[in-house]
Amino acid sequence: MEVGAITGYIDAAQIVLYVFWVFFAFLVLHLHQESKREGYPLQNDLTERNPRASSRGYPDVPSPKTFRMADGSTVMAPNGLSDDRPIAAKPSAGHPGAPLVPTGNPMVDGVGPAAYAQRQDIPDAAIDGSPKLKPMRIAGSFHVDEDDPDPRGMDVVGADGVVGGTVADIWVDTGEYIIRYLEVDVPGAGMRLLPMTLSRVDAKRRQIKVKSILGGHFVQVPATKNPDVVTRLEEDKICGFYGGGTLYATPSRSEPLL
């Protein structure tokens, strides 16, 4: 009999391997269950028509757990809350899973790519508890490098070539040291935020070009309650509006290519 053999055909190495397989299987199931703390149970056409139908899958949604946040607050997940916001769209056909057709202004109503999550209406915080995103006018030592074009004072031009406003300030992420938003002064509407990732700086023409929306859409961009602070919920609404413009800014964008 070989060293380490328990019987003629089983040894310690085999037992360790089998134990690992069992452990790994339970680990996969545990991680899959933990991933259901947010977003479950799912809502779909089947569960809406038949309340007894389940969309939880296996394993089931985990029991609620309380998490302590860095600021001392607590969050419970799953929290059992459901999103009861009315959907400003209707199915294009009678079968389950049919595409939704907007019934109003989808960019404002938050339909399709313009949808946004009901995040907390508080700003993202830095380590010291202060808002992480700040305009340069109050961000302290932040400045635009002298070798880069300063977008302040440049016209913001929509996809149709129409000027929607003028850049008044720059919002920086004090934790990542990058530009997050441009603050646009929109005539007749006040200040609106424009995601830097959806902007292209044309230094020669002194313009900020935006393809996702038209020049006339800037007045409809969701505003912030505080001129110097943007909350998580407001960020989602703002980014959702520009995202919605990629599909709904013009009728031709929502039509098939062929």
Rank of each mutant, 00 (worst) to 15 (best):
A159W: 10
A159D: 15
A159F: 15
A159T: 13
A159P: 13
A159Q: 07
A159N: 15
D160A: 10
D160M: 10
D160C: 12
G161I: 13
G161P: 15
G161E: 09
V162N: 11
V162Q: 11
V162A: 03
V162E: 09
V163S: 13
G164C: 09
G164Y: 02
G165H: 01
G165A: 13
G165F: 01
G165Q: 06
T166W: 04
V167Y: 03
V167C: 00
V167D: 03
V167M: 10
V167E: 06
D169G: 05
D169I: 05
D169F: 03
D169P: 03
I170V: 15
I170C: 00
W171A: 05
W171G: 02
V172R: 02
V172K: 03
D173F: 02
D173T: 12
D173I: 12
T174S: 07
T174W: 06
G175T: 09
E176L: 11
Y177P: 02
Y177D: 11
I178F: 11
I179R: 02
R180H: 04
R180V: 15
R180K: 10
Y181D: 09
Y181A: 05
L182Y: 10
L182H: 04
E183K: 00
E183G: 02
V184H: 04
D185W: 07
D185S: 12
D185N: 11
D185H: 01
V186Q: 00
P187F: 15
P187S: 13
P187R: 04
P187A: 02
P187V: 13
G188A: 09
A189T: 06
A189Y: 00
A189W: 02
A189M: 04
G190D: 00
G190V: 14
M191W: 01
M191Q: 08
M191I: 10
M191F: 05
R192G: 11
